[in-house]
């Protein structure tokens, strides 16, 4: 303030600024911020908050897009939980997918990051190679490739045949179909790996030197130094990957041809929601499904944050 009045050398202007009208003050203080925020604000109100409220309302209605919504109370939710085997099937599939794909992917990512963090030569090349599947993996093309790899006459079975094993048809067997999607997810461990690598670099090297002078084994160093100091990164990765896993859609859609078959074994929650909304035009029911998904993700996130103070190590 003083610097500015000295600079301009106009105390009159300063005095005027202390007694302007309310509107002038708002214009001067708040308007620039809101003008810059305007596009986001319009989007936030018009494409996020407004639709959220509408969606919540629609979840209590029957709505087929052509006639106006019919209020049905909590019927959608009641039907979902008490009388919809497909809902439970999709819930099981999604939970199974999240519970297996996320920890395995993170374990892989951490293991490779630790190998890369040994100061080896060629780090940028390895890092890039491992990252490539993450970048390409979300594509329809990769889902198509996966469908061919695990088909009955696909690549995996061809390799197995070379060692004399007759492989099953991985995609059309309900016992293995979901695992092909889990493997696809693990294959894309590159981006959490990069985040782990950045986290590992923050750990002071002298901690390991001190520990090995004290005769601590590599495993003990990992459990007592690496893992605790890395928990913020583990926490971050786990949250991001879990939310991503809940939202996953394209691979299951492509690999099952949009059906979620065989026997609903790849019927991801998002796929079921898509079918209800854009296959059967049950928009009310689909909205209710969306709110249950949001509740699920929120409970998970809240649980992670609440428990984080017991296991996430924050360095002050």
């Amino acid at each position: 303030m003083t610097a500015r009045s000295l600079q301009s050398g106009a105390p009159a202007g300063e005095r005027a600024a202390t007694t302007p009208s309310l509107w002038a003050r708002i214009w001067h203080n708040d308007a620039p911020g809101y003008l810059f925020l305007l596009p986001w604000l319009i989007g936030f109100l018009g494409l996020t908050i407004g639709p959220m409220i509408t969606s919540f309302y629609l979840s209590f209605t029957d709505f087929d897009l052509l006639t106006s919504p019919d209020w049905v109370g909590a019927n959608n939710y009641i039907r979902m939980f008490s009388n919809d085997p497909k809902f439970w099937a999709s819930m099981r599939v999604t939970m199974f997918f999240v519970v297996f794909s996320v920890p395995l992917k993170l374990a892989f990512a951490l293991a490779v990051a630790m190998l890369l963090n040994r100061g080896i030569r060629g780090l940028p090349l390895y890092r890039a190679l491992f990252y490539l599947p993450s970048l390409l993996g979300a594509s329809v093309a990769i889902a198509i490739l996966w469908r061919q790899i695990f088909a009955s006459d696909g690549l995996i079975n061809k390799l197995l045949a070379m060692v004399g094993i007759m492989g099953p048809s991985w995609i059309s067997n309900p016992k293995t179909s979901l695992w092909t999607l889990i493997i696809l997810s693990i294959w894309q461990f590159g981006s959490p790996m990069i985040i782990f690598l950045a986290g590992l670099r923050q750990i002071p090297q002298d901690m390991y030197e001190a520990a090995s002078l004290d005769g601590a084994s590599k495993w003990r160093q990992f459990v007592k130094i690496t893992l605790p100091l890395l928990t913020p990164v583990v926490f971050f990765n786990a949250i991001i990957q879990t939310i991503e896993a809940f939202k996953s859609f394209t691979p299951a859609f492509i690999i099952s041809g949009g059906t979620g078959n065989p026997i609903n074994s790849t019927l991801f929650y998002t796929l079921y929601l898509y079918q209800e909304a854009f296959g059967f035009f049950r928009m009310g029911y689909a909205s209710a499904l969306a709110w249950v998904l949001l509740a699920l993700v929120s409970v998970f996130t809240a649980f992670s944050f609440l428990t984080s103070k017991y296991w996430v190590h924050y360095d002050e």
Partner: peptide
């Protein structure tokens, strides 16, 4: 926020 919540509206 999962995009499904705003998708239909």
């Amino acid at each position: 926020l999962p995009y499904q919540v705003t998708l239909i509206p």
